[in-house]
Structures are given as C-alpha cells and as structure tokens.
C-alpha cells in the first residue's frame, strides 16, 4: 500500500524572538527585522508524513506552501528532510488573505495537484497567528473529515487511520476513514534532521518566483543542471493555474477585516522598586502580611 500525502506548511516570521526593532515607529510590523522560519508545528506534521513514507514504500509526500517567492525555502527544507517535492502557491491575488481565503486557496491547490490525496497533514497552528483555523477550514472545503490536535498516528490500515490526540484535560484515540485531514501538535515527535545527501541533491532547487526578474533557469549558473534534472525546478502555482475564483482569494475573499491595530503600551502603574537584599525582601513580606494580602 502506498499513500499520497500532502503536507501543508507555512513560512512564518519568528515571533518567538522579537527584538525591539520588530515594530516600526508607526506601529506596523517590521517583517524584515524578523527571521523567516519553517512554522514549528508544520515540522511536526512533516515528521508524521515521513514516518508513513518509511512504513509504506512508494508513498509520496508533497509539500504545499502559500507565500511569496522566498517561501519556497520551506519546500527545500522539507525535501532536505525527506519530502518528495512541493508546490509554491503564489499570486498577488492571494495577498491579504485571512484564514478562510487561505484555506480556499490551499483546498483548490490540493484538488489540482493531488485530487486522489489520502492524507493532508499540517501543523496545528502557525506561530504568527495562533488561530489553528486553516486545517479544519481546508477539511471542510474539501468535504473531508479531520483529526485536530494529533499527537501520534497509531496505525493505518484498510483505509482507516487511528490517531492519538490531545483534548482538554486528557487524550483520545480516534479512528477515521481516509482521506482525511490531520493537524499535529508541537508536542508530537520532532522532525528528523536534514539528510546531507538530500541537501546536496536539492540545494539548487528553485521556484520560478525566486529567479531575478526577466531571467529564466537558462540564465542561472549551472543552467545545464536545470536541463538535466527537472526536479530542481520547484512546482509553482498561480491563482489561474488552480482555477481559483478571484472573489474567494486574498483580501476580496476574506470576511474578516482588520479594523485597527494598536501597538502595545502598558499603562504604567506606580511600582515600588526593591532590590533582592534580605532587608528589602523581609520588608516586603512584612508589608504584605500586615495588609493581609498574604498569609
């Protein structure tokens, strides 16, 4: 038995390590100041896909990511770790998409590149939005069942998948028929590292969007490589390629609108500032006890 697996992955700004220059003086996000990374839980998702590929030879793992040209880095990274290939879903028409318009674009792309998909796996949520919405929204758009908060795939046989998932206050083991959509927690198994041979093989992979304007693969150094090894040309899809309805893409297809954005300024309180000396700590404890705040 071999499976056709699609992994949904996103390149995100690393919001975990935000420096003081992350915001512009106007209060907008200074994306250039934040490193772009593979969304952490999407790596956990990739690992689950690669484990199935190990278990069922002939299985293909195809990564789909939506974003600008530089997001193709996510596809290369996934290929270094074992994915077979991927598609960069990129178009100006996708810009400004909320989760619903994003899921529409992804669902449309999946129908286009892998209509007979067995399993769609993504991270539970992306760290730049923390919404956890795109996975279930894709599932609904494709009419598929979903298993969110996946911790581990326990078994897959006879067209059925059994999954252990985290729920509030506990765990649940559920079974679903294929095809279905899984979203994977960050506490699931970490992704395997890059494989050196695969890095050597795929490091020159490029999506057309990554080429300088007005140039083609023929203008690149090692142009002959791209002739001989078609896998070095990463898949790229536009809105038109997947027959997406423009009204459902990007800003136009997004029911949610950002009304305003405020930079965070804490309202400063009058704080008492103490040192860590014995005297200060003792004084604080006595004050709190005297006011019946503690004790």
């Amino acid at each position: 038995m071999s499976l056709k697996i699609v992994v949904l992955a996103k390149q995100v700004p690393d919001t975990r390590n935000v420096g003081p220059d992350a915001m512009t003086p106007e209060g907008t996000v200074n994306r250039s100041a934040l490193p772009a990374i593979f969304n952490p839980e999407d790596l956990n998702a990739l690992e689950q896909a690669l484990r199935l590929k190990d278990q069922f030879p002939g299985t293909t793992v195809t990564v789909i990511t939506m974003g600008p040209g530089r997001a193709a880095e996510v596809i290369r990274e996934a290929m270094y770790r074992g994915a077979d290939g991927g598609y960069l879903l990129t178009d100006r028409a996708f810009a400004g998409a909320d989760t619903l318009a994003t899921s529409y674009a992804l669902a449309t792309a999946i129908k286009h590149v892998q209509p007979d998909v067995d399993l769609i796996i993504g991270g539970r949520q992306a760290i730049d939005g923390d919404t956890a919405q795109v996975g279930p929204q894709v599932a609904e758009k494709l009419g598929l069942n979903q298993i969110t908060y996946t911790e581990e795939i326990l078994s897959l046989k006879d067209g059925k998948i059994t999954v252990k998932r985290h729920i509030d206050g506990g765990v649940e083991t559920v079974e679903s028929a294929l095809p279905c959509v899984l979203t994977v927690n960050g506490s699931a198994a970490p992704c395997r590292p890059r494989n050196v041979k695969r890095v050597m093989k795929f490091k020159r992979c490029l999506a057309p969007m990554e080429l300088a304007p007005e140039t083609t693969y023929a203008d690149l150094p090692y142009a002959s490589e791209y002739e001989k090894k078609p896998y070095l040309k990463l898949g790229q899809l536009t809105c038109a390629d997947v027959n997406a309805d423009l009204q459902q893409c990007g800003l136009a297809g997004s029911p949610t609108k950002v009304k305003n954005v405020e930079n965070i300024v804490f309202k400063a309180k009058e704080s008492k500032v103490l040192t860590g000396s014995d005297e200060d700590v003792n004084g604080l404890i006595q004050e709190l006890l005297a006011s019946h705040t503690i004790g």
Partner: peptide, 11 residues
C-alpha cells in the same frame, strides 16, 4: 503577531 500588537477585527 506574537503579542506585539492588539488587533480589532470586524466581519
């Protein structure tokens, strides 16, 4: 955005 902004969203 990692808690650096507060957004008001409307539909």
């Amino acid at each position: 955005f990692g808690g650096n902004i507060v957004a008001t969203i409307v539909n």
